[in-house]
Computed example of a mutant assay.
Amino acid sequence: MTRTATTNGTLPTPVQDPELGSFLLRLRKKNTDTSSHKLTVDSYYQYWDSDRKSLENTENSVAERRSNSDKLTNHFYDLVTDFYEYGWGTSFHFARMFRESSFKQCISQHEHYLALKLGLKPGMECVDVGCGVGGPLREIAKFSGAYVTGLNNNAYQVERCRHLAKEAGLSSLCKAVKGDFQNMPFPSNSLDAAYAIEACCHASRLENVYGEVFRVLKPGGMFACYEWLTTDRYDETNPAQKKIIHDVEEGNSISKLYTVPQCLTVLKTLGFEIIEYCDLASSEAPLQEAQDPWYLPLQGSYSLNLEQLHRWRMTPLGRWMTDKMVLTLETLRMAPSGTRKVSSLLNLAADALVKAGQQEIFTPMFFFLVRKPETPVAAPAAAAFSRADTVGH
């Protein structure tokens, strides 16, 4: 019997099974209810239709995406989660690409770095803000011994996260909770630490999610983050650069990217003590001489070593082959209608990310470490921000 769920009581979400390990089996499962999948695809694309016609004035469409950010991101991850796992793994993020390390090692090292900066250890309670399917959550729990709760507003990813934690024998340390990170289901002053990896950019406003992190942290608790931001090299009046950044936003469900100064201002205004920050993707960041560019997995190098062969699905050739496979499956009605459009969306995102990285107008790893003050601040600044952009939360 075909089963569907609803998003905010309005739109059926594609039928998915969190226990299926094969990408093709998951497509087959979605194909048992093709109408829901197509509705989800069309609903996501509608938020970007006006911008595709003209990027001269995007204020209205940005405002609409902000007000519907929860629906937008839910639709996006209903569509792309299986593609992400197939092509990238269960840790949906970039990393510093050290030349003496494999892709998997680089991803793990990127996660360990946050655990070390936060000083995580057994007995501490930490939240992973926007946890995806829990790749970082499981790695950080194993590395530190801390209790890590993943917070995610996408039901399929939450179920998948729980299943993978159980498979790994980590259910005692890892928990996944469905909830909005702009309205966290945790008591105030209850958590020792928090981290976010390339997730807060999906919020309608950074101040909303950072404000909630501030609220739930205990006094003295720390928050570490890798944030997606535009850099000082980005010129929004440059049509070519604006198109690249817009493609990054459309291909990754981001209402509007913040700048580095805007991000730091939000943190300070909310009352966080800034301990350190650095754009780890910058050509001027420490240890750059030991690294390849962060976007190399998407750009591809086509060398014949085993590590590059292992990453073939991420490269332009691998993505082209996946796209043709999906087109064939959809044509033969073995994959639901709209699957090819999802593949095309992800190719758009990948190409834009490479261009943005090459021009250094964007960073996926602006790192910051901040602390909630030990003594309470008068009239928490978080309350001063308007909630008008969180319609539906």
Rank of each mutant, 00 (worst) to 15 (best):
K256G: 08
N183L: 14
F23Q: 01
W48K: 02
P14I: 09
T265R: 13
G9T: 01
L298D: 01
F181Q: 00
H112Q: 12
L306S: 12
M184P: 01
G271W: 01
P316G: 03
Q182P: 07
G130Q: 03
V216A: 05
S101W: 10
L39I: 10
M184K: 11
R66A: 09
F94E: 10
P219N: 02
S301N: 13
K218C: 06
Y44K: 01
E159D: 09
A203H: 04
A165M: 04
R319Q: 10
R26Q: 15
E276W: 07
T339C: 11
W320G: 14
Q46K: 12
I254R: 00
K175V: 09
A155C: 09
Q308T: 14
A196I: 08
R160Q: 11
A356T: 02
D279E: 03
E284D: 13
L298Y: 07
N57G: 08
R333I: 10
L114F: 06
G271R: 07
K268I: 05
D82V: 13
V377H: 11
K355P: 05
L206K: 10
W320A: 15
T237Y: 11
H393F: 12
S188A: 12
C106I: 04
L206Y: 05
E139A: 14
A203D: 03
S171F: 11
E273D: 12
T363M: 00
M184C: 03
E330F: 08
Q182N: 09
D279R: 00
D247M: 06
F181Y: 07
W320F: 15
H202I: 03
R52I: 11
A196D: 04
Y45P: 08
N208K: 11
A382R: 15
D70E: 13
V129E: 01
C201A: 13
S188W: 06
P373L: 03
L267R: 00
R66F: 07
D351A: 15
L332K: 12
L118W: 03
C126R: 00
K268N: 07
L217W: 01
N347Q: 10
C131G: 06
V129C: 04
S301W: 09
K372S: 03
F214L: 07
A155L: 14
V133F: 03
M184F: 01
T40D: 03
S303V: 11
G211Q: 01
L369C: 00
C161D: 10
N68Q: 09
E273T: 14
C200A: 14
